[in-house]
Nucleic acid binder design. Structure first.
Lengths: 216, 216
DNA sequence: GTCTATATGACGATAGAC
DNA sequence: GTCTATCGTCATATAGAC
């Protein structure tokens, strides 16, 4: 049996991991710009700095490359809700969550766009993950919010729909960056744009939930 | 010179208009599901109930068909801000705007997705429209909000970013309907889902702007 | 493991009969 | 105006030398 992880792996396996990471990094860029159908294996190979055939050697098909990339992006996506825990202060938890999502839009806009493109077209490869792990996560975190509401620590709100709105507002700065940039006369959203966006979203969510900005 | 409009046109021109509308209606569905590159002329022809060659007869190229469709969608998109006028009541104007955008997501999800896909991939065909008419519209409506803020009729807020958030929250119910449906265990967002979503968005925006729901 | 050269098929677009 | 048959191109994927 060959080693799959990267810890304690031999130089052979380590080089393999490096090549795979190299291919996935390029693929994130290309799929983000062109979508699944719009991306060609030639472009994907050029982005990775390798001949076309090597991509087929490592992943078999374009579809397998795409789904591997999607899985790694979804894992990132799911890991951002850590701050929402029953013992946390609601305003602090929501602020931390929104800031984490905005940081993700700023630092990984291409990953966000690959994910958005997949969902936009009906999530053919991701639907089972969304109905499984994501649904479970939303139910868990919604229960935390319900607890806060029942305890009078925040105003009543429909927790899943609050999440849908937070996802939409934060991801729009990555996914629809072209539109925001066009309206603001920028080539793409810059640091100031993200700062103003974060403030606006925090204002809407915190006040909408009857909370004050966390003192610090 | 042939007549382009549909009023006062002869039966020849009227049939031509009908065929074009038929092709565009099918194209909206196909482009929404597959994107520009993912849609094939065969699928587009099948969706219109016509042979492939007829589409080329009416539009020349796939790209021309796509841009014609995009233009018609953008015109719809721009026409939703009518309620935001200086003499209106802020809470009523924002409520009407949000309800109109949600109605659009509910009734024309495919049009919304075609637009989203175009922007997501950098708006290659729409960039000039976004930097032109859309930017002008945002500046005009932002000035209205600035007036309300200066008059103490609503809390201070960054108007363009408020628009970005409202667009994101309302359009997510069309564009990311697959994700929302998966989380809520629905095949797609239904009437109840849209009602709860509308209430949540109204709560965030109105309270976020220091407003009370309009009495009615 | 790597890469060149190529097989196979689908695509957008058009020619030309009706 | 409409439709069938087809052209040339470019895609994914693979065979086989190194």
């Amino acid at each position: 049996m060959t080693q799959a992880g990267n810890a304690q792996a031999g130089p052979r396996a380590r080089q393999r991991q490096a090549r795979i990471a190299q291919i996935l990094a390029g693929a994130e860029r290309v799929f983000a710009e062109a979508g699944f159908e719009g991306a060609s294996m030639s472009e994907l190979a050029a982005a990775a700095g390798l001949p076309k055939a090597n991509l087929h050697y490592y992943f078999g098909t374009k579809e397998a490359l795409y789904t591997t990339l999607l899985d790694s992006i979804l894992a990132l996506w799911l890991s951002a809700t850590d701050s929402i825990r029953p013992e946390a202060e609601p305003a602090e938890a929501l602020t931390a969550y929104i800031r984490a999502k905005m940081r993700w839009s700023r630092e990984r806009p291409q990953a966000s766009r690959v994910f958005a493109n997949e969902v936009l077209h009906g999530a053919p490869y991701l639907r089972s993950h969304l109905a499984g792990p994501l649904r479970a996560l939303v139910q868990e975190k919604s229960a935390v919010l319900e607890g806060w509401i029942a305890a009078g620590r925040m105003a009543p709100v429909d927790p899943p729909h609050l999440f849908f709105s937070i996802w939409a507002m934060t991801q729009t700065y990555a996914d629809f960056g072209a539109q925001i940039g066009a309206v603001l006369d920028l080539p793409e959203p810059d640091a100031d744009c993200f700062a103003r966006g974060t403030d606006t979203i925090l204002q809407l969510v915190l006040r909408g939930c009857g909370l004050e900005p966390p003192g610090r």
